[in-house]
Amino acid sequence: MTPSIPQVRLTRQRYRAIVYGIAGVAVVALLAGIALDQHVLGAVVYLVGAWIGGGIAVLAPRWSDRTLQDERDYELHNRASGLLVGLAMGFGLSVLPVLYVLDAGGTVEITGIVSGVVITLSALFLLYGVCFGIVKRRT
């Protein structure tokens, strides 16, 4: 008679704890690397954590026989993404043109950080447009 090996089933709670736990360790390692002047070590731990955590997040729902994610999770992600883009677009369209006008008039000065925010938001909108086009073609 062969001894039975207890199988650990991946529950939704365990799945989330693993993914968020690895992501948390990765972020803490990155910040600790900056604080302790161990940038390379922090970056390596972060990259390993990001890839392992991301891999588990994507692959576990496909391989597990348990339902780890379902249609409600996807809808929540869709709504959150829409809200993010909406807020960013509202901020971008309402504030940024004013900043450029005031900068041209010499009232305020657009610093490097603000330029970085503008470029990041522009890249986000561009990427959103590309992703929207891809999804639209496939639907």
Partner: peptide, 24 residues
């Protein structure tokens, strides 16, 4: 939830009228 292949949280959300399920 196991019978219809979703999570328990989704059944709970439907019962509380906080989520409208897909047609499927």
């Amino acid at each position: 939830a196991e019978v219809v292949d979703v999570t328990r949280q989704t059944i709970n959300a439907i019962e509380r009228d906080r989520y409208d399920p897909s047609l499927e």
